[in-house]
Design a binder for these strands. Structure first.
Lengths: 341, 341
DNA sequence: CTGAAAGCGCTTACAG
DNA sequence: CTGAAAGCGCTTACAG
């Protein structure tokens, strides 16, 4: 039903291989033949059958992303499209297809994906410190790149946000302004239990900041909802009446905290300073606009895809490990403590 | 390098076809043979080669989504992951792969996708009233489902939000509360120019509401940024000092409007009532929480995928056209006009 | 219930 | 610069 390579070859009076050469831009064919064939290809509306190409060549020209979205204990919100679109854009530019797996996989299914020639390589998201997927892919010698990283990253490629230092920077900013009693609103307890990288590293950053600046450790784990942020912030203020600032790890939690502060009849930044860390694009919606350290999912996704595709193309490519730069953006949600207290 | 069907067949001492039957759960094979083969499959770690299956059977068992994200005139924000995850989840459940195209395609590329056997069907997003993709797919007899719809939808399947009636309902709610001078903050001018469904239908709803309730038409087109929403709302209040309420079509614009109102030292809902329409999940971040009509991208995506897969599986399936239900959720951002004026 | 043959539409590896 | 052969790993359509 569709036009095939052979159809074109017959019409052109050449062999299939010659048409193949013309279509794929291979060397070893005269310019005149190529042009003649290509115009015929155009005329006949020939499109190579991807599956057949893949089967014959043993490559899929496709990368996969595993972004487990339906794991309620791990992530309830904050699914960021920006990572997906960053990867998709980069894949398209490199002429790779992009297959998305959003379910929670088990080892069997992941193995199946690798063995079934669905993709040449895979990008992992929601990486935990000791992620079983990493071991599985390693054993299968299946190329992959992590967005995030685990405990032992030797020989692995990743792109990650530097949660640890971002948290420290947020604290430094507040300490500079004279704050000493700072509430830390971090990721859900479930994330810590599952050893998800962001939770572990954010907490490490918190501990370092406490040590370095000799602060009282005030830490609350919030689920990623406005309600939970509201509840935890309210608790924090009750249990530590001298708190003057918050460092918050998620946009919905930040909104809950803001809401809580305003419900108490207090103001930002006059009464409380607030700094967000690792906020995505949707944090634009937050009022008042927060001083925050953002991450840019599209850029992270793009780099991850680039590294993966490079690995696939270039056999001698070495592992790349990238911690993206971050810096705090100032928008007026923090104030010098002397102004208000 | 990988274990193949033939490898299993040899070990089992049967034909390839018999293994195929066992693996695919086909009829016409004795239970004992099947079990023997399946345990061998397990032992040998055999995984069928998807590409080969596809080539031989002429099906890809894969659906595609075209969600053009990089078209700056059409959409600058509001890329919703929820649609993607809804489709992805449904696809996975039906054992379909899910390939994502996020670039802007032209006719040539879309044709290529259909002809190249990358997917069995496609879901379109960002549908305009007169979308060239629809014509192209129709001609190719390539199965597709729209999220959104165009002018003439005869014989086509779609899942869409009822923008028109949602806007009317938002107006009705405000009129019920006594508001007569209502500002409409709608999608960017570019959307109107491109005939994007949401822009066209939202405007139709606005016009109907104006007619039905005999209101003064006050309409501003805002780009999908907080800044633009701020600017348009400020303008609206200046040019129509008697405005008491806003109907807003996008979350970032709503945030801009809220910001503008608060900057003027006015309050919601005491001084201004605000209603959002077609807000996605991320509107959780908006403070104060808005009375709004939401759409649920995951459900919409899920239904679209279900319809498409049904079309692929069931040749006699008829086109399905679904307008999702909507209702306004009350959260305190509107008030009776007599209270304040 | 089982199998041998042909073929899906390409590419690889080789020969000329 | 060009081509004939074999094969990628399955399934379809048929025969028994």
């Amino acid at each position: 039903m569709s036009v095939t390579l052979d159809d074109v070859a017959k019409r052109a009076g050449v062999s299939a291989k010659t048409v193949s050469r013309a279509v794929n831009g291979e060397k070893g064919i005269s310019e005149t033949t190529r042009e003649r064939i290509l115009s015929l290809v155009d005329e006949m509306n020939y499109v190579p059958h991807t599956q057949a190409q893949n089967l014959a060549s043993g490559k899929t020209h496709s990368i996969a992303l595993h972004y487990p979205l339906f794991s309620p204990t791990l992530i309830s919100e904050g699914l960021e499209m920006s990572f997906v679109s960053g990867i998709g854009g980069e894949a398209a530019q490199a002429n790779y297809y992009f297959t998305l797996f959003t379910g929670e996989l088990d080892q069997r299914e992941l193995t199946r994906i690798c063995r079934a020639s669905i993709a040449d390589g895979i990008i992992l998201m929601q990486v935990s410190m000791d992620d079983w997927r990493v071991e599985t892919l390693r054993k299968l010698h299946f190329p992959f790149v992590m967005i995030g990283r685990c405990q032992d990253n030797q020989g692995l490629s990743f792109v990650d946000f530097d949660f640890e230092n971002a948290v420290i920077d947020a604290y430094a900013h507040l300490v500079d302004l004279g704050h000493r009693e700072i509430g830390f609103l971090t990721y859900p307890p479930a994330w810590q239990q599952e050893s998800l990288g962001p939770a572990i590293r954010a907490y490490l950053g918190f501990q370092q900041a406490i040590d370095r600046f000799r602060l009282k450790p005030i830490c609350y784990e919030a689920n990623l909802t406005v309600e939970s942020g509201y509840a935890r912030a309210t608790e924090a203020v009750k249990e530590h009446p001298d708190i003057t600032a918050f460092v918050v790890m998620h946009n919905t939690v930040a909104v809950g905290a803001i809401n809580a502060i305003q419900s108490l009849g207090r103001r930002i930044p006059d009464d409380y300073s607030v700094v967000g860390v690792a906020l995505g694009k949707e944090s634009d919606l937050i009022l008042p606009p927060l001083n925050a350290i953002h991450w840019y999912g599209d850029q992270i996704g793009q780099r991850a895809a680039k590294i993966l595709i490079n690995t696939l193309t270039n056999k001698t490519a070495k592992p790349e490990q990238i911690l993206v730069h971050h810096k705090i953006e100032i928008r007026g949600s923090t104030a010098r403590i002397s102004q208000s207290h």
